[in-house]
Design a protein around this nucleic acid. Structure first.
Lengths: 187, 187
DNA sequence: TCCTCAAGTCACCGAGCGTTGACTTATCGA
DNA sequence: TCGATAAGTCAACGCTCGGTGACTTGAGGA
């Protein structure tokens, strides 16, 4: 992505942001250096500071996104797994933003805060609405399950999970999601 | 753990190792500094190098453990959740070694290798043996689910999962484990 | 055309890191 | 009691990082 000589502020800023997302997603916060990001774009490291103020500012900008959860109102709880999983996997496959946030959240309290807030404000309510008894435990458990899938597939690349084709993984995981959302509740 | 003046090599080495585990578990690899670990023990940073050679050597020693998975041969698959979960949660609550390895594996390829190897060599076979059809997908999915629980509860501290009492979390998660191990397999 | 101002470069600072080797001190067998 | 040896300290190194400020260069309107 060496824009190099184009001298267009917006394009350069965007290229830095994109390179930063990839680096943060691949290496985490500490191992990512401004020098590397700048080199990926073909630009002086000072440009990163110029546009984003600091390394923390760069990450904040890189991890700023809207979740755009699909509306689950009309879907029967039993079909939720089949509905959710293909989208979920496709997003993680094509956009490194989530992976960057997840990886960084493992070691950075600020990023963990952001992820927690995302969970509490958007994920849990959206899922809880889709359960018959609206038990928040189900939504939390589903979030935990999906996060486990993302971690083993995209961060750790555990062979059993990472090597499965998306549709096969979705087929195996769908009944689990149904169980989480509609299974029996403890006393 | 300030042994300070005791001048006992074995005890000092052990204290350093223990402090290192806590630091790696809490902060990850990069944010953990030898100076901090040494200060926790009340010792000069040079001692850490003296006993472990390098920071990488310290981590390798800190993350070296045997898994000691319980024998699941006599347990009916339907009861596996109730059998596994309390042990699982207790271990994570009282020993920071696993948390250290998990957190570091998120950003360090070497630690991720170790975790993958642990999964492939010990976790998956032990779980696969406990399923009726011995499908490796079930074991992988169970590993993914447990890892998701550990991540949301101990690393990210997601409110819905982290605040649940252990027995309540076990009660909610047990049927999910049963579904993973004994539920229908896709075509 | 040329002058202006934003876009981009460059050299450099201060700090903290892992690591080293020479030094000091407590311990313990002879 | 006393010296040998391991345990522990100390000061410093080389390096890389995030961040700063002065400089250079190119694009575009008058």
């Amino acid at each position: 992505m060496a824009s190099g000589r184009s001298r267009n502020a917006g394009a350069t800023r965007g290229a830095i942001l994109s390179a930063a997302r990839d680096r943060f997603a691949a290496d985490g916060y500490e191992r990512t250096t401004l020098r590397m990001v700048a080199a990926d774009v073909g630009v002086d490291p000072a440009m990163v500071i110029r546009y984003f103020g600091s390394k923390q500012g760069l990450f904040t900008a890189a991890a700023d996104f809207s979740l755009d959860l699909p509306d689950l109102d009309g879907v029967a709880p039993a079909d939720l797994g089949a509905e959710i999983l293909p989208r979920f996997l496709a997003v993680w496959d094509h956009d490194s933003t989530f992976l960057a946030l997840l990886r960084v959240a493992m070691t950075s309290p600020e990023a963990a805060d952001k992820l927690r807030e995302l969970f509490a404000a958007q994920v849990v309510p959206a899922f809880a609405k889709a359960t018959p008894d609206h038990a928040p435990e189900r939504a939390a458990l589903l979030g935990s399950f999906l996060l486990g899938l993302a971690t083993t597939r995209y961060v750790l690349a555990t062979p059993g999970i990472a090597t499965m084709p998306p549709d096969r993984l979705a087929a195996w995981a769908a009944p689990v999601i149904r169980e989480i959302l509609t299974g029996p509740a403890p006393a």
